[in-house]
């Protein structure tokens, strides 16, 4: 693909858990501003691949480079490199993972203060901007327990965006939500894609993948089974396994 402009590259990334290859030699180039949707059966290594990108899991072999800066993951990664990487790569989890003992505003401001060294006022100002963007400024002083799942996930997105990342990773961001609450999260993600954010989204929301993603990747057994423009992959899948998987999720 657009090799020269790729903001993120994985080369032959492998990760084994107890003898089982969760990610089995994945190579991937993602262009700046590209939105990539990842689908595949449960256990196919989607989460592990995402988690390797920001080194929540350290790959056993392979290289990862963000913005041309190579990370040799075979040795130990220095704490500085790790922080550098993580402030450029934001991540949103299926289970939101807000800090329940802090208000919504604190959840978003604290990482800015600790990781970017912003002052409290500066961080709060940025947090309020982002809360407005995700439509939740009225929840600033609420605790997460007083927010719906959809609201919590939007706060989690704002929290990640507050560090001004260049890439955003989403691991099944709507799977824990009722459909209508999922929609408000997807709307925020759609809007984020429109601003030109580079995004990798693991999802079972085929409609979202078809309408928002530039590329659709199908994973199976820790590998990329096939990939291409979403409509092409959805309408004319090359592999029998893709067809089986697609009809299984359409039946739900």
């Amino acid at each position: 693909m657009k090799q020269a402009e790729s903001i993120l590259s994985l080369r032959d990334v492998e990760k084994t858990f107890a003898g089982h290859k969760a990610v089995d030699g994945v190579s991937l180039d993602i262009a700046r501003g590209e939105v990539v949707a990842v689908i595949g059966p449960s256990g196919s290594g989607k989460s592990t691949m995402l988690r390797c990108i920001n080194l929540l899991e350290v790959p056993d072999s392979g290289t990862i480079s963000v913005d041309g800066k190579n990370l040799d993951t075979s040795g130990t990664v220095s704490a500085r490199d790790l922080t550098q990487l993580r402030r450029r790569v934001g991540m949103v989890f299926q289970s939101f993972n807000l800090f329940p003992h802090m208000t919504v505003l604190r959840n978003i401001s604290l990482p800015q203060e600790r990781v970017l060294g912003r002052s409290r006022e500066e961080a709060d100002r940025r947090s309020m901007e982002l809360l407005e963007r995700v439509g939740l400024q009225q929840k600033a002083d609420a605790y997460p327990a007083k927010c719906s799942g959809g609201q919590q996930q939007r706060v989690a997105i704002a929290r990640a965006l507050a560090l001004d990342p260049e890439i955003m990773l989403f691991d099944e961001p709507t799977s824990a939500l009722d459909p209508e609450l999922g929609l408000e999260v997807l709307a925020v993600m759609r809007q984020l894609a429109d601003t030109g954010m580079t995004m990798i989204v693991v999802t079972h929301e085929i409609h979202f993948a078809a309408t928002v993603a530039d590329r659709l990747i199908v994973m199976a057994d820790g590998r990329i089974l096939e990939q291409g423009p979403p409509q092409q992959v959805l309408d004319d899948p090359q592999h029998a396994r893709t067809r089986t998987f697609l009809s299984a999720i359409k039946d739900r």
């Binding site: 920001n54 929540l56 704490a79 790790l82 922080t83 990487l85 993580r86 402030r87 934001g90 991540m91 989890f93 289970s95 993972n97 807000l98 800090f99 329940p100 003992h101 604290l110 990482p111 600790r114 990781v115 989690a156 929290r159 990640a160 560090l163």
Partner: peptide, 24 residues
């Protein structure tokens, strides 16, 4: 999950302890 989220945000080990783990 909260520890992972804090890690993913780039918070240091000691900050994760100080702001997330110890208070809760």
């Amino acid at each position: 999950g909260e520890l992972e989220a804090a890690d993913a945000l780039g918070m240091s080990r000691s900050d994760v302890m100080r702001f997330v783990v110890i208070p809760q």
